[in-house]
Design a binder for these strands. Structure first.
Length: 276
DNA sequence: TATGGCCTGTAC
DNA sequence: GTACAGGCCATA
């Protein structure tokens, strides 16, 4: 479920592990160890010096050697005694418990029912972001991210919705916050990106929505995401996402519509969000 | 640039 | 049973 605010919430919850030593590291699902520059065993015995984030990636900094974790749709980091992990999964050595981090300060499972999540070991972060075309983080590197966004948006004819989901244009935005940002500014999701006049405002508003969602500890739609088992509350703030058929909260006349754009569902108000 | 595939679970 | 799910990658 995680977009930037959810990943940030996870990073904050795991931050007490900074300074801890990784005493063991058990990979249960080989598929999780993706495009890595070394074997998992290389991390055993190392100190976790910092936990950072860029876009939707969690960064475990082991000092010139990093693990990048992507939670994709259903990935969660949970303490090994978490009640969120079903007993069935626990007792069958399911691959859904993708791996286990054992720190001298506590053990964590990477629990991921759909098994889309990944762990990637890298030595050179900057090189990795460049290779994967991940834009600067809109929260951590605001001005660089804004500059990049302005330039990239002016350069593409793709629909606004597709651009907001494109991590090479803005990092960390997924389907929920993309729909919310376009609604907040009254931009139709099919508007050609380069034709948007309020590009600067779109960046600022998207950033503001992400910040507000971080304060709410993220959005929880189907189940819990946070390592402490507490649900995020931003779902209460959603204006259009998942509200197909409900009256628009702004004009209160038209109903929220659903439209598939580049394979993903978009939610919007045809009255408040006109194509320019 | 758009499409299918990866996986499993849940809602209808 | 069918449709759908917050993301990304490989492929055409």
């Amino acid at each position: 479920m995680p977009e930037l605010p959810e990943v940030e919430t996870v990073a904050r919850a795991l931050r007490p592990l900074e300074g801890a030593r990784l005493t063991n590291f058990i990979v249960n699902d080989k598929k999780v160890w993706f495009e890595s520059e070394c074997e998992p065993e290389e991390f055993i015995g190392k100190n976790l010096t910092a936990i950072k984030r860029r876009g939707k990636y969690l960064i475990y900094d082991f000092g010139n050697l990093y693990i990048l974790q992507h939670l994709r749709m259903t990935g969660k980091m949970l303490p090994d005694d978490s009640a969120i992990i079903p007993a069935k999964i626990r007792s069958t050595n399911s691959k859904q418990l993708r791996c286990e981090f054992r720190f001298d300060r506590g053990n964590y499972f990477f629990y991921d029912p759909r098994r889309f999540g990944t762990l990637t070991a890298v030595r050179d972060l900057a090189h990795y972001w460049k290779k994967k075309k991940i834009a600067p983080d809109p929260i951590e590197e605001e001005s660089a991210a804004r500059e990049h966004f302005m330039q990239a948006m002016g350069n593409t004819k793709r629909p606004a919705k597709a651009s907001l989901l494109d991590q090479s244009i803005i990092a960390g935005v997924g389907n929920i916050y993309a729909d919310e940002a376009l609604f907040a500014l009254g931009i139709h999701p099919l508007t050609i990106s380069a034709r948007i006049k309020k590009t600067a405002e779109l960046f600022s508003l998207t950033r503001a929505i992400l910040e507000k969602a971080i304060k709410a500890r993220g959005t929880t739609v189907y189940n819990y995401v946070n390592p402490d088992g507490v649900a995020g509350s931003y779902a209460l703030e959603l204006k259009v996402y998942g509200r197909t058929g409900e009256p628009c909260p702004r004009c209160k006349t038209k109903k929220i519509q659903r439209l598939v754009i580049t394979g993903r569902s978009s939610h919007f108000c045809a009255h408040c969000q006109k194509r320019s």
